[in-house]
Every structure is written in C-alpha cells, then in structure tokens.
Design a protein around this nucleic acid. Sequence first.
RNA 1: GGUGCCAUGGCCGAGUGGCUAGGCUUGGGUCUGCAAAACCUACUACAGCGGUUCGAAUCCGCUUGGCACCUCCA
Length: 494
Amino acid sequence: MELYQSNEVKLYNSLNGQKEVFTPITPGRIGMYVCGPTVYSNVHLGNCRTFISFDMIFRYLKHLGYKVRYVRNITDAGHLTDDADQGEDKISKKARLEKLEPMEVVQQYTLDFHNVMRQFNALPPSIEPTATGHIVEQIEIIKNIIDKGHAYERNGSVYFDVVKFNTDHRYGKLSGRNLEDMIANTRDLNAQDEKENAQDFALWKKANPDHIMRWPSPWGDGFPGWHLECTVMSSKYLGDTFDIHGGGMDLKFPHHECEIAQGEAAHGCSPVNYWLHANMLTLNGKKMSKSTGNSILPKELFTGDNDFMEKGFSPSVVRFFMMQAHYRSVLDFSNDAILAAEKGYNRINEAITLLDKLPVSQTSSFSINEWKEKCYAAMNDDFNTPILVAELFEGASLIQKINSGSESINQEDLTVLQQTFRDFFYDVLGLKSSQESLIGDETEHLDKAMQLLIDLRAQARANRDFATSDKIRDQLLEAGIQLKDGPDGTTYTL
RNA sequence: GGUGCCAUGGCCGAGUGGCUAGGCUUGGGUCUGCAAAACCUACUACAGCGGUUCGAAUCCGCUUGGCACCUCCA
C-alpha cells in the first residue's frame, strides 16, 4: 500500500482558481512538465524559487509513492528579444555580443544552471529536453496546426490564428482574458505587421541572412516560435493530455495560454489537467528581473558578495527561507527575513542532532501520530510548506523536551518521530543539515582538531586562566566556529 | 486603460466565520567564571469605512495603498 492511497492531495488549479482533489490520469503515475530556464545568462534567485518550488512538489509526490515523470525543458533557442516581428533570437544576440558560438553560450549557462540547482539540492528532472533538440518535432506540429486550419504562413514565417481558434475554442481561459477585450485594447502600431491580428503569435520565424541559429523548414530557413517547444516536448514525453503543468506566474500569459491553444489545435484535446503557478520572489518589494538589474545571483548570495545582504547564506538556509512561505505567495527577499530564517533553521538543526540520542521511556506522554498526521495534512493541502515547517518547529520543541525530560517517548513512537522528521526535512523539503555540507573525511579531521582546542580550553578554564579560554573561544568564533558549553561538555557548530 | 492578486503584531509569514499557526526580535528566568548557545517563560495582530451574522481579521461593498501580467522574463 502506497502513501498516496491514504493521502488525498488537493492542489490549486490555475485553470479554474479552485483547490481540487488531485486524481492522476493513470493511477499511481504522474506526468509533470515545468517550464525551465532560458539559458542566455546566469539564473538569478527569482528563477531558482520557481524551480525549488516544483522540486518540493516533485519530492512530495514521490514521497507519497507516485511514479512521477518530471520533464523540465532547457530553452536554448526561440525566445525573441523584441517584437515577434523584428525579433531576434535571444541566444544568438548574446552570442554575437560575446563573440561566442550560440551553443557555447547555451552550454555555459546550462552548466551554471545545473550547478546552482545542485547547490540548492534540487533533484534533476526525469527528462530535460532542449528546444534545439526538437526542431524536427516542432516543424511537424506546425504542419499539423496548419493542416487543421489554425495557422497561416506569411513570407517564410508561420503564425497561429488566434481569432479563428477563438471561434470554436476559448483563447484566454487560463489567464481570465477574453479576446474581444484584448482586441479592443490593442492599438495597432505596426502597420507593416505580417500578422493578420495583433493577438496572433509566431510558430515559426523566418531567419534574416545574418541570423546564426537557423534550421531549414518547409517555409525556408528559420527558427521556432516562443511557445512551441513546450507543447512539443510535453506531448512527446507525457502525452497529448497530462497531469500537471507548472511554471512561474509570469508565464501564465501569454506563454501558457499559447500552449493551451497549440495543444488544443494540434491534438484536439486540452493538454493539461492541473495548471500550477509558482509566485514571484521579490527583492526590495519588486520583482527580480535581469533587465532592470533588480536581481541577485545565487553565488552572490552564498558568498555574501552583494549589495543587499550583510553576509553570505548557505543554499540550505535560502531554501529553508523559501519553504517558510507558500509557493503561491509573493515572497520578498530581505536581509532581516533571511537572517531570521537562518536562526530558525539552526534551531531545527539542533533538534536533529539530538534525534538519535533521545532517552527512551516505557510510555509516551503525547501522541506522535497526531503530529505526524498534521505534517501530512499540511502537505496534502496544496503543498503548504509553511505549515509543515511550523510542525517541524513543534517537533523540534518536542525533541528538546524529551531530551530534557519534560516529555517522554517510547521506542515505537521514537522510530515514528525520527522517520517522520527526516522524511519531511530531508526528502520532502529537500534540506540538508548544517553539518552536511562537509564531506565525511573532512568532518573527521575537523572533529579531531576541534577536540584538541576544546580540551585545551577546558584545561585553561580549570586553571581559571580565562584569558586563554576566551581567546580560544573568540578567535574560533571569528573563524566561523561557535563553541557551546553544555552540561555534558563543549560542542561546536559552524 | 484591461486582467488578476495582496494588505496580518517590531520584522518575516500561515490560516480560519466563533476554539490566540510558526519563526525572528524584545522582556523575564534556568544554566555559566563571564558570555554565547540551548532550554523555559511573557508579548492576543489581522489597512480604513460601511454591511451581512448571535458572532468577521475570516463573507459582501466601497476607500486607500502595494504587486504581478497585458512586451522577453521563473
């Protein structure tokens, strides 16, 4: 019996704005697609929040025993810098500026992305397809959409006919827009526009002679439009209709709206059952954005080399900070907020170090299963990680009380406590304990060296040579190591 | 202008028509040579104005403020 059979997950579906009971198309199996990064520059922290949010969702669904195929693409072509019409492929623009091959740029930033995701302890997706690896499929689906009468060719480019599509489908159902309003609100600035309507979007763009990234197609040399890759890759790997599609809130319109239109036009069915949108991470109250400069790189945050924070923070602390907010809420990043999160994170880590050393009693003075159920209930309710974190703090408090003897626990319950605490902290939230950043070998060496210092200090204290003992303590603190005198001797944390 | 979302105690951040999330900070205490850490303990908030209700911070309306999308952006 898998956990999912006894845990009913409710998730907020952007398609109708309601929390719905999640039922996969195939029992026990889930297909999930998340829009990945455009690899033309380093991912910033805001990008990371979305991927960390969906990593948490992926982890919880797996924890429940579902077999999840998680597809997250790499956009290495096709996003335009300007208007669809005088647009230039983002990747090739960057390439020209830096005098690099386009695929060199792609490689560099893909590696950076993977590296950052690894630091945040995000699991790799099951499949990570690239747009450039699916040009053939994109050309095929464009032919299909043209055949169905939902697209037209103009001067070597192909456009999706939104107005025609809207006559027997509903364009705008995800973002709550209707086409009439959109048309009414459009001022027609581009008289030379190839498109029949301003709302039409490109499926294929003709490449100018100097455009580096280009592929042959039935309409001439060009490159695929912005929204097509996701439709192609999601349907290829997950089917024409699949369970969950995720992405950042800012992709809801037009990107996801266009995906729905493309899917419905090409396959005749709605592509996705549950649309999930992760909210933005703001910095100083404003959305992070590469173009405005209001952004912070993960590396700058980890090292403390940035203008916003007074010191560096470990990836796990940053992840914990994000988990303290709901994925659908805007989260503002600030020095005070992350500092507070770091202290809370340390508190939970203190409890974890006690987990294997707790005294066992004949009976328990509380109901551990009640606590465990609350943890699951939090996650089952649209992945409410802030509530889960609150429960982990309750658990941490419980651990301290058992340790100090004001609560007691029997062996059976202790096993539940250990298992549940670890399941949620490590597996579901994807956090690491503060000591874990060190590799085993290093820890051992450090332990030995530290023990020597601790012994020396203890001796100095015994001789009431406090000048020496305080010197050891204070200088270690400057080096980032904190000594903690307890009843059973002195321990240290980094 | 259009479409959504949000306003919670010093700070961050959940949530619910009635039973005081949680973390951080701060005050008091235990421990300590002194600290730090840890632990115990205290601190009853929901933008404003109306309305519905026995009862609303939670539902409805208005006002004010903020954010996101409508153009590439997670």
